[in-house]
Design a protein around this nucleic acid. Sequence first.
RNA 1: GGGCUGGUAGCUCAACUUGGAUAGAGCAGCAGCAUCCUAAGCUGAAGGUUGUGGGUUCAAAUCCCAUCCAGCCCGCCA
Length: 560
Amino acid sequence: MFEQDIIQILEKSVKGEVKLEVPPDPKLGDFAFPCFSLAKDFKKSPVQIAQDLAKSLHKPEVVDRITATGPYVNFFLHPGKVAKNIISEVLKEKKRFGSKDEGKGKLVAIDYSHPNIGKPFHFGHLRSTIIGESIARMLECRGFKVARLNYLGDWGTQFGAMIYAFLTWGNHKDLDKEPIKYLVSLYVKFHAEAEKDPALQDKAREWFVKLEKGDTQAVELWGLFKSHSIVEFKRIYEVMGAKFDSYSGEADSARQVEEAIEHVRKKGVTELHEGALIVRLQGFEAPLMLRKSNESSTYASRDIAALLFRVHELHADKVLYVVGHEQAQHFQQLFALMDILGHPKENFMHVSFGLYMTAEGKLSTRKGRIVLMEDVLKDAISLALKTIQEKNPDLRNKDEVARSVGVGAIVFGDLLNDRVKDVQFDLKRILSFEGDTGPYLMYTHARAASIVEKAKKQKLKPSADVDFLTLKHVTEDRVVKLLAHFPDRVGDALQQFKPHVLAQYLIELGRAFNEFYHACPCLQEENEELKKARLTLIEAARQVLENGLYLLGISAPMEM
RNA sequence: GGGCUGGUAGCUCAACUUGGAUAGAGCAGCAGCAUCCUAAGCUGAAGGUUGUGGGUUCAAAUCCCAUCCAGCCCGCCA
């Protein structure tokens, strides 16, 4: 907001579009204008131009001073005026600070989490769940309506394989004991055996055909696997605090596949190839298969049906898929086909993310190389509880806070880095509570909350009606300026669908707050005006930390 | 063979979309901070040929080309 004032002033002296930068070091100023590109027009050196501009520019209201440093014109905002402006706004807006209504009237459907039934909930699903939830919250914050879709992987040849494996090697007694682990062991055995005897793949396909045709035995087993799985998923979602608007999965889409295929066929782009129905898409070597020669549906056809449903029935303006990078090509093809069907591909986006890697390679259910989400959650929460018992044994709601901290550590650990990169699986780092971590931010928030709480005993409350000009310390100024950046950073993060932009900002804010905390005691301050101003700044920072953590899907405890 | 990502400090990463000032954090290791609002914190020193080679530019970690390395996709799997 202050940026616009400066740009307006500059545009009077300089031709063309003015773009401001933020200097690398706050000591250089709050905004900078580089003069390199003006050298030709002015026939002077950039350094000279900067000096001339710094002298001649008329200062906007919020600007304290303008200086020339080398080829840059640097603008310093007036600390007190900025503080008053921003802190009062945060106090007034509270949880809404950072929100806008740019998405008003638009519906965005987000497809995320989507675990596969009969398989454990692992770190791949975790990434999708965490990234998807964060994006959903950011969209809501900017005024969009959001449909959270958990498109369960509950259909396909793999379930033919699972049914075959169960009938061949399995029994109900072992299934009831530890359903998911047992199903996984059968699935791993199936793939090991299939390496030796490829004919097993045909068995899997046969059983999937039976399943699609409604064979009683197949449908019953499938239903059993599915219900066992959903029990496990819901347990995990409850711990993580995730909620979905729909659990409609591939099996539901399978029922709409014929209708979808008819829709595609009308465009005249389908053809038969060795008995299978395919679409050849320009720019892709591999065709998209809509129906196998044995008449069963395909992943692609079910996805087309699901997407058409989301566009036609759900009336989504935009559909996001939070799915691993390995499916990039699939989505390019899917969106290209939608374009042919008259739905511009700009309305769809594959929000891809890298894979979790172990030293042995990619996590793979087939090869039995899995990390169970439930185990990691348990570890994180019990470690948090242990830490609380050491550091704050008198805390009342220990279990609840431990849960928040444990989950927050995992969520933040995942969101701190750019989602496109593969992630080295490192339990020790996930469970670390120091440095650039979720617990660091939660702790910072709790510190701030604790001061505001203690101030009540001195009959002090944060209030915008204080003299912010008393805030003169460099650490106070730093926190204020960072608070002012929050709304923009939310916008940046959302524009790229990259929560790490916001996560990185929060770390910066948290660090600035802790520096201020150490340098500027509040409650012991003797100057009453300064004390009140600091208290109000602390509350504003606490509020922004809470809002930011919320947008990442993390709760902010008042004590820990 | 075709395609998509990524390569930055000992380790994990940020900055790359939109080129700009001295390439920033955390972890590990080193030296410190406790009569004082929560030490899950703070301060300091140390740590770099941004994979390599070209090109564009006043200016390149950032854009372009080539090349090497790593991961992934190209299955009547999902």
